[in-house]
Structures are given as C-alpha cells and as structure tokens.
Simulated assay, not measured.
Amino acid sequence: MRRVFSILFILLTFTTAHAQVQVEQVIDSVQIFIGQQVNMALSVTAPRGAKIVFPKFQKGHYLVPGVEIIDTRIDSANVDGLLRTSQIYTLTSFDEHLYPLPALKVKVNGKQYQGATLALKVLTVDVDTVHPNQFYPPKSVQDNPFLASEWTLPFLFSVLLLIVCVATVYLLVRLKQNKPIIAHVRIVRHIPAHQVALDSIEKIKVGKLTAAENQKVYYTQLTDILRQYIQKRFGFSAMEMTSSEIIYNLRQAGDQKMIDELKELFQTADLVKFAKYSTLINENDLNLVNAVNFIDQTKQDQQPTEERIVPELSLDEQKTQKNRITIKVLLSISAVLIICIMLAIFWYLYQILG
C-alpha cells in the first residue's frame, strides 16, 4: 500500500507541474500589405526558476520562404504567481501570398513543448488598370536657362582673387630673398670666472678622468680650465702662453706658495702630455686640489649678472627692415582680401545654385 501511495503521489506531482506549463503562439494580425510588419509571440507560462529554451533565429533569416525575421526580443510578466516569458518575432514579407507559419518548439526544464500553427496573408495595393490616365510618369530633367548676369560677379571676383594670389606670391618671394635682420633683444648671463672654472673641475670629478688610461685627457682639460680662468681673472692671454710664461706673469701679483704649487701642476701636465710621463692617482688628486685652492685664493668677490644687449642696425639694415615691414603689412592685407573674396564667391554661388 505504501508503494501504491508513493507512485500515486509522484504521478500527481508530475501532472500538477506539467499542468502549470502553458505554451501559446499568437500573431498580431493575420493579414498585412506588402512591406508592413507584424509581431508573432511565442509565450511560455511556467513556475519561476524554470529553464526555458526558445528556438533561435537570426535577424535577416526567413521563418518560412517569403517571410523574413527582421527583429527578435524577449518580454516577461507575472501571471497568477507564475512567470510568463514571451519571445516576440517581428516579421515582414514582400510577396503576395498566404503563408502557413509553423508551430515553434520550445523546451521547458528539458521537456519539449509546441506552439500553434498560424497563417499570414500578404496583400498588394490595388492598382486601377482601367483608368491609366490617372497615373503620370516622372518628370524629366528641366533645362533651366543660363543667365550671364547671375555669373558676372562671381567671375569678376574670381579674376580679382587670381590677381591678389599672384601679388601675394610675388611679395613672398621678395620677402624670402631679403636677408633676415635679427633685431631681438638678447639677455646674456655673465658668470664669474671662478664659478665657471670650479664647475668645470666638478665635471672632471664626475667624469672620473683621473684613471691611468685617461691621464693625458685629464691634464689637458685641467690645464685648459686653469688657463681660461687665469686669462679672465688676470687679463693676459694665458691660452697662448707656455707654462713658464704663465707662471712668470702670475709672480707679479700672487702668493708665492700658491704659484709654486701651480708651477708643479703645469710641469706635471707637460710631462704627461709630451713626455708620456705616468703619474700616481694620489698625485692626480693632489694636483686637482691645488687647482681648486689656487682658484679659491685668487677669485674675486663677484655675483652672476645679466646684460641686456640690443643690436644696432646700420642705415642699410634699417632700410631693409622698413622694406620687410612694408612687405609684411602688404601680405597681411592680401591675406584678408583673399579670405573676403573667397567668402563672397561662395556666397554668390550659394545664391545661384541654392
């Protein structure tokens, strides 16, 4: 008896669940004209959570030959505690015919259901063939008269535009052939000689030129920095003098001890550059320190200054500058004329052709 009741309960539950699933296939209208659209809905009413699989159709495909699917969408609504899900197909046709629409199949929780077979009648527009005189053929292309007076002003403006363009090109060539005149005010920053020298020595330190394989380059740069500093500081041409000549001139105004150290530095540099003498790293560092000390002992108390330099023009350059200014003014006027003439031409053409 328990088995019988269990089987009856299962059958009753299955029948109830099956009764809750309803499939309906309807169409908005069974009759349309060629090119009109109609909606066909495949609706499934089932409990919430039911897995529903609708038939898939791509846009542009045909439901049946002659009936095209142009759009699909899904809609849903609550009906008496159940969920009603609808797949809506937008259909159209361009051939007069009575089309049978097949019953679409849908799966609910793995079980297949089927809608209803429908029909769609496509009609054409009635044409009165008894009275053909009521229909007129398309009009032919009209031959509008050509009036020269309408095109006179655009033609004259076009000629004027051509003349102005030629004059502009001529002025540009004239402007390009003249030598440019630099009349910009320059701001020159003057840095004290000792600051320039110390900055250059710092670059030598960063460049690590005290290694044995770079001794010639190291002493060449170091002595050049000192020569430039001495020339700017003491006012004689140290860049063109020998080491002994530089020392001789420095003895006139300087500490004897500092000059002796500088003399030793120049002698070492001459040996390295011309006699292939090899120094020790400590000796290189000592010479570098002596150079820095010499600069610190002899530097002047100066601050960086800025000088405003305004170039002076000769009479010929002033005349050339005036000519260039005149040409530039004429070019500006030509550019404005070109723009105005082009706008006028476009406006007249718009009036004639519009």
Rank of each mutant, 00 (worst) to 15 (best):
F266I: 01
A275R: 14
V310T: 14
Y219Q: 06
I225S: 00
V206Q: 10
L315V: 12
G207E: 10
F274G: 06
K299T: 01
E245C: 09
A275P: 04
P304Y: 10
K299H: 09
K273D: 00
E245F: 10
Y248F: 11
L250R: 01
Q303S: 07
I247S: 02
D255L: 12
L226S: 00
D255I: 13
Q252K: 15
K203C: 06
E245S: 09
N214Y: 08
E240F: 14
I247V: 09
V217M: 14
V289T: 13
A212N: 13
S278E: 09
D296C: 07
I225R: 00
Q252C: 07
K205Q: 14
F236H: 09
Y277R: 07
L280R: 08
I230D: 00
N282G: 07
T223Y: 02
I295L: 02
R251H: 10
T242R: 15
F274E: 05
T220M: 12
T242V: 15
E306M: 14
L265T: 00
M239S: 13
F274K: 12
I259Y: 01
Y248R: 14
Q300I: 10
N284T: 02
Q302M: 14
D285M: 07
M241Y: 08
E202T: 14
D270C: 06
N249K: 12
K208P: 04
M241G: 04
A211S: 13
L288M: 07
Q252R: 15
N249S: 06
E245W: 06
K299S: 03
E240Q: 15
E261I: 03
A212I: 13
S237D: 13
Q302V: 07
I281L: 05
K263L: 05
Y277Q: 04
N293I: 03
T210K: 06
D224M: 10
E312N: 12
K263R: 13
K257L: 09
D255P: 07
P311L: 11
N290I: 05
Q267G: 02
A253I: 13
D301F: 12
K273N: 04
V292T: 05
D224Y: 07
N290H: 12
R251W: 09
R227Y: 02
A238N: 04
Q303M: 12
A275Y: 08
V289W: 11
S237I: 08
L250D: 00
R233P: 02
A291Y: 00
Q221I: 02
N282E: 03
V292L: 07
Q267P: 03
E307D: 14
R233Q: 10
Q267K: 13
L280W: 05
Q256A: 11
Q252H: 14
F236G: 05
V292P: 02
S314E: 05
N290K: 08
L222G: 01
Y229A: 00
E261F: 06
L280F: 10
N287V: 01
M241C: 10
D224W: 08
E283D: 06
S314P: 08
K257R: 15
G207A: 14
T305Q: 12
I247K: 06
S314W: 09
Y248C: 06
K216M: 07
F234G: 04
V310Y: 11
I309W: 13
